[in-house]
């Protein structure tokens, strides 16, 4: 996979998820549908993060210094994104 995609993948998932959520809440202010869409968008975002994490963890045995490093960053990014996406979805359950 392209190094930039790996480096920025997890965070990009977070960004897309966030802007989707913001659009839902803006398009349907105060309506139940915004909550449902929020949760609907969260599931695939978490799935992609998990996928990235799995892909990155599976290739931790790279011999090339840069490649190994890119996978390290990628895995950390996906993990962080995973937590942030969950936080992002909490308002749909709690507010």
């Amino acid at each position: 996979m392209n190094a930039w995609v790996l480096l920025l993948g997890g965070l990009t998932v977070w960004a897309i998820h966030f802007f989707l959520l913001y659009s839902f809440a803006s398009l349907f202010p105060g309506q139940e549908i915004a909550r449902i869409l929020t949760l609907a968008a969260t599931a695939p975002a978490l799935a992609v993060d998990a996928l990235l994490l799995w892909a990155a963890a599976g290739r931790a045995f790279q011999t090339d210094e840069l490649d190994r490093w890119v996978y390290d960053v990628s895995a950390t990014g996906a993990a962080l994104s995973f937590i942030a996406v969950i936080w992002q979805a909490l308002p749909a359950l709690l507010v």
Binding site: W14, F18, L21, Y22, A25, S26, P29, G30, A34, R35, T38, I83, A84, W87, Q88, L90, P91, A92, L94, V95
Partner: peptide
């Protein structure tokens, strides 16, 4: 702003 919207920003501010 609607509560749901501002709560998204609250969550991101935590993150």
């Amino acid at each position: 702003m609607p509560d749901l919207s501002i709560s998204f920003f609250s969550a991101a501010s935590m993150a």
